[in-house]
């Protein structure tokens, strides 16, 4: 089994004095994760709302035309 490679949590954060290089990379990875999934998830809600509004407009148009006849 792999073992924890650091003596303490502080040593883990220090990354053998490479903290300023290692941690930003993993923060950028978190950003990469978020920018890959979050915009399309929020976009989907917006699209569903727009399409719903479009459907309602079409239905009310059809109802008006029905009254005209």
């Amino acid at each position: 089994m792999p073992e924890f490679q650091f003596d303490s949590f502080a040593a883990f954060l220090a990354m053998g004095d490479y903290a300023i290089y290692v941690w930003p990379v993993y923060i950028l990875f978190a950003l990469f994760f978020v920018t890959t999934v979050l915009p399309p998830i929020l976009g989907r809600r917006k699209i569903i709302r727009q399409l719903k509004a479009r459907l309602e407009r079409m239905e009310s148009n059809m109802a008006e035309q029905g009254e005209g006849n």
Binding site: F4, Q5, F6, M15, G16, Y18, Y21, V22, Y26, F32
Partner: peptide
């Protein structure tokens, strides 16, 4: 992968802990 790479993989004998960046660099 992230927890193992950051905390449980042994440090490189030349690059120390800085090499842990490759776990993001190579896949990207």
């Amino acid at each position: 992968g992230v927890v193992w790479g950051l905390a449980f993989a042994p440090p490189d004998y030349q690059m120390g802990d800085n090499y842990r960046i490759i776990y993001m660099h190579v896949p990207s």
